[in-house]
């Protein structure tokens, strides 16, 4: 689905929502914020209204109500995952959907493995598992993923870039893949995973930075699916 179609869908839904709001002046008791009741997102070609569960007695059950998991590997993540990367909360994420994802200038990334994604995701997210950006992953896989983020592969890296890559890679383990991809028009990206105890999106972020993705274009939703569900926000089940 292209950005234009996505925007048409959102505008139609927004107008529909406004008309019905006017027709049914009911007050939603559990809003997102004092001014905002819902946010529209396009998920796999469908418009989804992100809102909160209205049942004020509702409590979480299942996986996301669990407090303790073995650490390692499920350890508490820092607030700041890497220099230059901005950590955000739910309101900033919703703004990101409205202002960036719906307009085609940003990508919301569910960085979890497919087994998690299939259980439900934040509407508007695309699933790019964290392993995609590991050093061990092939350039082909990285190239396909990066193309979704507005980052094309450089047809032939310059000799200087190749030499620099070789030197840095030889002397320093913390190298970057200079010159392989063109990050000039990289989109803003917001990555998330299961929550404060989940290392999947932090690892994806570190992998992206190593590849040369500008950190100031990366956002990290640390609360992840656990905080999302804790607030009763809408979860989308991917199409089978």
């Amino acid at each position: 689905m292209n950005t234009y179609t996505k925007q048409i869908l959102i505008v139609t839904a927004a107008i529909g929502g406004l008309i019905s709001l006017h027709a049914n002046a009911e007050v939603m008791e559990v809003k997102i914020s004092p001014e905002k009741e819902s946010v529209l997102a396009v998920h796999e070609g469908e418009v989804v209204a992100i809102q909160r569960i209205q049942d004020q007695n509702h409590v979480l059950t299942g996986g996301y109500s669990k407090t303790s998991r073995k650490c390692p590997p499920f350890c508490i993540q820092p607030m700041h995952v890497a220099p230059g990367v901005t950590t955000v909360g739910e309101l900033e994420l919703l703004e990101f959907i409205e202002n960036k994802v719906n307009k085609g200038t940003g990508v919301l990334i569910d960085a979890r493995t497919p087994a998690w994604y299939e259980k439900g995701t934040i509407p508007g997210s695309v699933n790019i598992p964290f392993t995609t950006f590991d050093e061990t992953e092939s350039d082909l896989v990285k190239t396909v993923a990066l193309s979704k983020l507005g980052v094309p592969k450089v047809s032939s890296p310059t000799m200087m870039a190749k030499t620099w890559n070789f030197i840095v890679k030889t002397v320093n383990a913390d190298y970057r893949d200079y010159g392989k991809w063109d990050f000039d028009n990289a989109k803003d990206i917001l990555l998330w995973c299961n929550g404060m105890w989940c290392g999947q999106s932090p690892r994806a972020i570190k992998g992206l930075i190593k590849m040369g993705y500008p950190p100031e274009k990366i956002f990290y939703y640390r609360g992840g699916m656990q905080s999302w569900q804790m607030l009763g926000l809408t979860v989308a089940e991917p199409k089978k």
């Binding site: 998920h43 796999e44 469908e46 989804v48 569960i53 049942d55 509702h58 979480l60 059950t61 299942g62 996986g63 996301y64 109500s65 669990k66 998991r69 073995k70 590997p73 499920f74 979890r112 493995t113 087994a115 998690w116 259980k119 439900g120 509407p123 392993t131 590991d134 061990t136 999947q200 569900q229 009763g232 926000l233 809408t234 979860v235 989308a236 089940e237 991917p238 199409k239 089978k240």
Partner: peptide, 26 residues
């Protein structure tokens, strides 16, 4: 790395869907 991925899969299997807060688009 393999152990981490395996642990993730096991944890994913254990985590049930939270039906009430799940909006399906199926």
């Amino acid at each position: 790395d393999d152990a981490y991925l395996k642990a993730l899969e096991v944890e994913a299997e254990k985590s049930a869907q939270v039906g009430n807060s799940t909006k399906s688009i199926n």
